[in-house]
């Protein structure tokens, strides 16, 4: 009986292997043509299928990044991303020496885990108060006022997660891979074309440009 049982087991093993082995080989063969892991970055609006895609590389302690987010990216999110016309992907790239910029990026990465509305609220608050926290160093106050106290407590817990630092590192590595040299830099892609822009571009200009591709 014991012998019979082991024979069945061996048979079923070979049967399974007959199915599993080709499947495994197929997966291995397909691996190189499957898309690589998505690059680092947070989608602030739109989707990867939007006709226009903007990848923003930014630092919370940089004044031009503040202008770009508050005056250009925010209206784009409201006007175009809500209708899935423009996909905005944000990449953290704190400039070396901007210690508070890095700290702000950590808060924002943690806020990302609380959902998009919280993320956007924290980004806005941090950028709006940039001059104040850059002077006083009190970044926490700007983050705290962007959400209810219960969420802020959760955010502080999330901040302890070592994966926050790892994710930020992924952002920075991706920026280095893209040879980003200054902030803000954004790469805009539409209709198979791509343009890399260093610096602040006002919303009326972006509106004209996006209008070429999107109604």
């Amino acid at each position: 009986m014991r012998f019979l049982g082991s024979r069945i087991a061996i048979r079923s093993f070979f049967k399974t292997r007959r199915i599993l082995l080709p499947a495994l080989l197929l997966i291995l063969a397909a691996a190189p043509i499957l898309p690589a892991q998505d690059p680092a970055g947070r989608i602030l609006g739109g989707s990867r299928n939007s006709p226009v895609r903007i990848d923003v590389f930014s630092d919370f302690q940089c004044a031009a990044c503040r202008e770009l987010f508050l005056n250009t990216i925010k209206p784009i999110l409201k006007e175009y991303s809500a209708r899935d016309k423009v996909c905005v992907i944000y990449h953290e790239y704190p400039v070396a020496g901007h210690k508070l910029g890095l700290a702000a990026a950590r808060y924002v990465e943690a806020a990302h885990r609380l959902g998009l509305p919280r993320l956007l609220a924290v980004m806005e608050s941090v950028f709006l108060d940039q001059a104040a926290w850059a002077r006083t160093g009190n970044l926490e106050a700007s983050v705290a006022k962007a959400m209810p106290p219960a969420d802020f407590s959760r955010l502080k817990q999330i901040m302890q997660d070592p994966r926050i630092g790892a994710e930020l590192n992924r952002h920075i590595q991706y920026a280095l891979q893209q040879k980003i040299q200054a902030t803000p830099t954004f790469i805009i892609r539409a209709a198979g074309k791509e343009e890399r822009v260093d610096g602040y571009v006002p919303y009326p200009v972006m509106k004209h440009f996006i209008g070429r591709y999107v109604k």
């Binding site: 805009i188 343009e195 890399r196 822009v197 260093d198 610096g199 602040y200 571009v201 006002p202 919303y203 009326p204 200009v205 972006m206 440009f209």
Partner: peptide, 16 residues
Amino acid sequence: PLQFSAAVAGYQVVPE
């Protein structure tokens, strides 16, 4: 054109 727009904006002499 966008990069040139950024350069023009940088001069802060013309309305947006």
